[in-house]
Simulated assay, not measured.
Amino acid sequence: MTIIVIGKTGQLAQELKLLNDKVVCLGRSDINITDPEKLNSTLNKYDVAGIINASAYTAVDKAESEQQQAFEINASAVGNLAKVAKQKAVPFVHVSTDYVFSGDKGSPYQVDEVHAPIGAYGASKAAGEKAIQQYAAEVSCIIRTSWVYSQFGNNFVKTMLRLMAEKPELGVIDDQIGSPTSAKALAHACLYAVNHKVTGVHHFTDSGVCSWYDFALAIQELAIKHGLLEKPIPVKPIPTSAYPTPAKRPSYSVLDKSTLKDAFNGLQPKHWRNELEIVIQQLATQKQLKDMKND
């Protein structure tokens, strides 16, 4: 029995593959999720035990000018996957985002709150959630998350490490508040949802709350501790207004995780600083191996 992961090169897909040898990751060259016939044809080659959708159109700013592409991948294709999962009677786990909310509430968002996206990316992800609930709610689990990082791919942690090594000083936004999420921890939650046929909407992030500025300070501190950076540079807090982007970001997008206690048998996310240190250690090991190879 195979757990099909839609997505191949993304952070979550790579962590899922490391965690479970029953996982088969399918990328764009392997499967076409926008074409129902081709999607069915590909999945019929496998003895499918469950489907995890770890793929998405995630270019938040680009989505403002590429709304059709964003909705095709984040909404229409998600509806296609939900229908296939229902047809095959297998669990479907879909990863969604804090961007389905406006960020204006000022307190943690509950799982059943009404969508209120403030940009095209968030709107496309909200449409994907609605498609799942319309077509296959009884076999589906929607996991909303935020600020995902890992040893893989492109993410805030790796961007900060690069900039901190290159620049004399850095300005980082301090008025957007949320919760970072280790892709490895999220992968564990996704696999639990498939294996235990969890349904409904749930939130999963690391525990704790911070701003991007707080997160950056911790990244620098731990990177110096583990030898990824030689010396600290000044990191200054800046407001969102000083860094304009095509798409607005939620200013407060902390997600309430209280449903995990029952639906995920008490699954308790670790604090973001603990998860961050694990990723920093992984990146330090990678650097050491690379340095040894080059010597």
Rank of each mutant, 00 (worst) to 15 (best):
T34Y: 02
V279D: 09
E275P: 06
S146R: 04
I52W: 00
I31F: 14
G227V: 10
F204L: 09
A82F: 03
I6Q: 01
N74A: 06
K290F: 08
G10P: 00
E72V: 09
L276F: 01
Q69K: 15
Q220N: 12
A284H: 07
I143R: 05
P250W: 03
F156M: 09
P168T: 10
G50C: 01
N32T: 07
S124H: 02
I73V: 14
K45G: 12
E15W: 03
A127Y: 14
L229R: 04
Q151R: 15
S29K: 10
W272I: 02
H94K: 05
P246C: 11
K125T: 00
V194F: 05
H94S: 08
A136L: 03
I51G: 02
Q87N: 09
L255H: 00
K184V: 12
T245H: 12
E277W: 06
A223S: 12
E37H: 12
G266N: 15
G103N: 05
I52R: 01
Q286K: 14
Q69R: 13
L170K: 02
N80M: 08
N265T: 13
A63D: 14
D30S: 06
A131Y: 08
L283V: 00
K184R: 15
I143W: 01
A85D: 12
T34A: 12
N74G: 08
V172N: 04
L12D: 05
I51H: 02
K225T: 07
A123H: 09
Q11R: 14
C141Q: 05
Q281G: 13
D47G: 08
L163R: 05
T245R: 15
L186P: 03
A223D: 04
K125C: 04
V114Q: 11
F71Y: 06
I3L: 03
R249S: 08
F264Y: 09
D35V: 14
P244K: 09
K184A: 11
S146P: 09
S55Y: 05
L222W: 10
F215T: 02
L267G: 08
W212Y: 15
Q151F: 10
A120P: 05
Y46A: 05
